[in-house]
Amino acid sequence: MSRVRTRPTRDDTCEKLFEAAARVFEEQGIGGASIEAIAAAAGFSRGAFYSNFKSKDELIIAMLEDHVAQSIRRSLDLLARHKSLADFIDALKTMDRSQQDPLGRSPLLHMEMILFVARAEKRRPDLAKRLRARRKLVADIVETTLKSNGKNGFINPAWTGAILLALEDGFRLHRLIDPETTPADSFLRAIGDLQRGMGISSS
């Protein structure tokens, strides 16, 4: 007879800590949030936290890494089902954020966490790895949509990916500063405008 697992796996524990940390960060601020508060919000002891992460910074890096990994999986899945740029953008607009990781549901918290980690110079290489992964994803999407529209070679996918990612991060920062004049869909609207400006077909 197989044993019934009564203890949560490490993945289960990490997921609960990620969710709890996001709530505590939004309520108390990233700098002011304590490990004790995060552990308590997840229903764990301080010891349970330290059995998974050495510090709050390590937890944040893990959350950012998990977000990038999940974003890549979701985007590639959408791209496989929606080859045209317009269809892909529409799919992104209608994506159910409630099913995403905490940073997927809260782009502003994602940006705040990046800025928090970037203040520590020794942590910047960790951020750089995630940035490169995000750039590659966007470049792959650009290349796929260009090929499907017969415009391969018309644009440099890598450079265009870097521009689009900077544009996305810029809109996130602007929304953090002035949400009244920066709608949540600003980036996707900008992509649609660029698509039309480059003469890329929506079909």
Rank of each mutant, 00 (worst) to 15 (best):
M1I: 06
M1P: 01
R3F: 09
V4K: 13
T6M: 08
R7D: 07
R7F: 00
R23M: 00
V24M: 07
I30W: 01
G31T: 05
G32P: 10
I35T: 14
A37Y: 03
I38V: 15
A40N: 13
F44R: 14
Y50D: 05
N52S: 12
N52L: 09
D57R: 04
I60N: 01
A62K: 03
E65D: 08
H67N: 06
R74C: 05
L78I: 08
L78F: 09
L85P: 00
D87G: 15
F88E: 01
L92M: 12
M95G: 05
D96T: 07
G104W: 05
R105V: 01
S106E: 10
P107I: 09
L108S: 11
M113Y: 03
A120N: 13
R123M: 14
P125A: 13
D126I: 05
R130E: 11
L131W: 10
L131I: 09
R135M: 13
K136I: 04
L137A: 02
D140H: 09
I141V: 15
I141W: 03
V142M: 08
V142E: 03
T144M: 09
K147R: 15
G153V: 04
I155P: 00
I155D: 01
I155L: 14
A162C: 04
I163R: 07
L164K: 07
L167M: 13
E168I: 03
F171C: 08
L173R: 12
L173W: 13
H174P: 01
R175S: 07
D178N: 15
T181L: 12
T181V: 14
R189G: 10
A190H: 10
Q195T: 12
S202M: 03
